[in-house]
């Protein structure tokens, strides 16, 4: 087992990004203490293919009660790799999102937009031997939130991955190209580095688009790479 390269903090938001108001009282104020990583950080949970059921990767079907969900069907392809470009096989990817109207199934979402009886908005998939994953869903809608006057979240899908170790844990959001709300969104803008922010935006792909069925998007995910030398035990 080898350890992971340190987190590149330049690719991430600070704990406190005042434009996103909730960070002000919730982000730690003291810098995290660097520790030498070992077994505890280098190991992590692995998931058997059986932990993903047949329809988990198809959000257009896994929440159906009496018909098809409303909205624009999309298919999201991506490769999970590390910063050295190595594909990451057998990685569980969990996803959740709002429906086409911008409403979450979550009981606390009070946004005045309709629920869709045929769309729950959560699922999961695993990467194959080449690090590729795919899931089908409905393009999520934008929705208002209380951060500031007339605040709207851009269309986005939440993704959660462990990667090869506990240290590589990542929860992120995938956005859509050309969304005018991106430049107004304090969550997207919380990542100060513009080039890093671009990595949160999926690419439309006519090659991945399925004729007569679903628009295709590509969203590659890059996790921390490994150190060249194995750890001392």
């Amino acid at each position: 087992m080898s350890t992971f390269k340190p987190r590149d903090w330049g690719s991430h938001a600070p704990f406190i990004a005042p434009g996103y108001k909730s960070t002000i009282l919730r982000g730690p104020t003291q810098a995290p203490l660097a520790i030498k990583s070992g077994l505890s950080e280098g190991t992590g949970p692995r998931f058997a293919p059986a932990s993903v059921r047949k329809l988990d990767f198809d959000l257009t079907k896994n929440g159906i009660t009496n018909g098809e969900p409303l909205g624009e069907r999309i298919v999201v392809h991506g490769k999970v790799m590390d910063t050295d470009g190595r594909p990451q096989p057998d990685i569980l990817v969990e996803v959740w999102q709002a429906n086409a109207a911008g409403r979450y199934v979550h009981k606390l979402d009070q946004h005045d937009a309709p629920l869709d009886p045929n769309f729950r908005g959560s699922g999961r998939c695993m990467t194959d031997a080449n690090g590729n994953y795919v899931f089908y869903t409905i393009k999520p809608g934008a929705y208002p939130w209380g951060n500031h006057f007339n605040a709207w979240r851009p269309n986005h899908i939440h993704l959660s991955l462990f990667g090869p170790g506990f240290a590589t844990r990542l929860v992120t959001q995938m956005y859509f190209p050309g969304d005018p709300l991106l430049e107004l969104d304090p969550i997207f803008l919380g990542t100060e580095d513009a080039a890093a922010r671009e990595r949160l935006i999926s690419k439309f792909s006519i090659e991945k688009t399925e004729e007569g069925f679903a628009l295709g998007y590509q969203f590659d995910i890059v996790l921390r790479g490994r150190n060249a030398t194995p750890m001392e035990n």
Binding site: S11, A13, T83, T172, I187, T191, A196
Partner: peptide
């Protein structure tokens, strides 16, 4: 490759 940023 650069790391994918974390989001809430």
């Amino acid at each position: 490759y650069g790391e994918t940023p974390s989001q809430t």
